[in-house]
């Protein structure tokens, strides 16, 4: 199971055109992620981390090259198929939390299950379980604007993992959090990775995150300059 190919990219290129100019955000990126990985993409600002995550997450399509995610070629998906793929198999965590402001904590976490058409009783069970993981059962009725940053991101984590997706993409999940909250979030994600075999792919330039990673891919100017597996990572401190 853990050896299954989850994501493969081959010569992935992404160009953005800014007026006349063309910006190459990804420059022939070839990577391989197996299921159950806990991997971070690091690199300076503008190196293409977000772009890479977005393409792998089927939110964007490459200019050339291929991204095969869960046996699907991202470039060939229709909008609907891409939405379906995200719906069933992907969870997203954003730097700015992106909770739905009009929904309560419970409803925010419930939302992906509604999209998947789970019956109410099952939804309730799954949402409470997810809130248990992130230790927020006491806040299920709160609104996003009543939460601290750390709590908001925990809700976002619960929302991303409630449907037990194959892959969670987290674009700088700790950039807006202090050290303690960052560690808390990472501990949660790490234990979910172990318990549920969920693949986590981060982008970050946060040292605190890097300590937790089992693999670090370094991007610079859209190119992979380093890719290493870290032994004995994730001190549960």
């Amino acid at each position: 199971m853990a050896d299954d190919n989850c994501i493969q990219t081959r010569d992935l290129v992404k160009d953005y055109s800014l007026g006349q100019q063309r910006v190459r955000a990804l420059n022939h990126v070839t990577l391989n992620f197996v299921c159950g990985e806990f991997c971070g993409v690091v690199g300076p600002s503008g190196s293409g981390k977000t772009t890479l995550l977005n393409i792998m997450g089927s939110l964007d399509s490459p200019t050339s090259g291929r991204a095969i995610v869960l046996d699907r070629d991202i470039a060939s998906l229709t909008h609907k198929e891409a939405a379906q793929l995200r719906n069933h198999h992907f969870g997203f965590i954003f730097q700015t939390f992106n909770l739905l402001p009009v929904y309560s904590v419970f409803e925010n976490v419930e939302f992906p299950l509604l999209l998947l058409g789970y019956p109410a009783s099952e939804r309730k069970k799954m949402v409470l379980e997810a809130l248990e993981w992130v230790k927020l059962t006491d806040k299920e009725k709160a609104r996003p604007n009543q939460l601290s940053g750390g709590e908001s991101q925990r809700v976002a984590v619960a929302r991303a993992i409630v449907k037990k997706p194959k892959i969670v993409f987290a674009d700088e999940p700790t950039a807006n959090l202090d050290a303690q909250n960052s560690r808390h979030i990472l501990n949660i994600m790490q234990s979910l990775n172990r318990q549920l075999q969920t693949t986590f792919i981060f982008s970050t330039h946060d040292e605190k995150v890097i300590q937790f990673l089992r693999r670090v891919v370094t991007l610079e100017d859209g190119r992979v300059t380093d890719d290493r597996v870290i032994e004995n990572s994730g001190s549960e401190s």
């Binding site: 997450g57 609907k80 939405a83 995200r86 992907f90 954003f94 992106n98 992906p112 999209l115």
Partner: peptide, 12 residues
């Protein structure tokens, strides 16, 4: 941004 989030969550 909310629209983007809805799409990321799997809405078409």
């Amino acid at each position: 941004k909310e629209i983007g989030t809805l799409m990321a969550l799997g809405m078409t």
